[in-house]
Amino acid sequence: MAALTELKGQELGTQRVAIERGPVKVFAAAVKDGNPVYATEDAPAPPTYPFSWAFHGSRGESSVTGLPIEKLRGKGRMILHGEQEFVYHRLPKVGDVLEGKGRVADVYERERSNGGSMEFYVTDTDWTDAVTGDPVCTARFTLIVNVAPPKD
């Protein structure tokens, strides 16, 4: 099975999240950041919180579909979270309502010296301020499928 390059460019839907005080404080504690600013009324979001903020903050209807993980599974195919990147346009804060729009930014494959291969599925979520439309943060998620070499 070759990498599903036809996924490239596919839109992954939109979602809305609210950044809330309690979850930000708990998340900061979970990543061992005791800075008291994270317990304030207008606390900033910790740097990696955008990856997780939909869990507590999801609002309204979401049309997010995500990658078709079931199609990526299979024998000898190990699925890994390979890389994660955040680009910050402005600091997200408690009280913000954000809109996230996802798309598959890239799909590519690399051969490995052992005869196997690695498939890369890169998805970008662009988060904007739901009120002003200003960009807030882009989260780039890279999923890797580690494909074992064929058995003789």
Partner: peptide, 16 residues
């Protein structure tokens, strides 16, 4: 952020 301060990051990328 302990080093550069909270709110100063422009970009952060990691490989697992």
């Amino acid at each position: 952020t302990n080093y550069v301060g909270i709110g100063t990051l422009k970009r952060y990328k990691v490989r697992f």
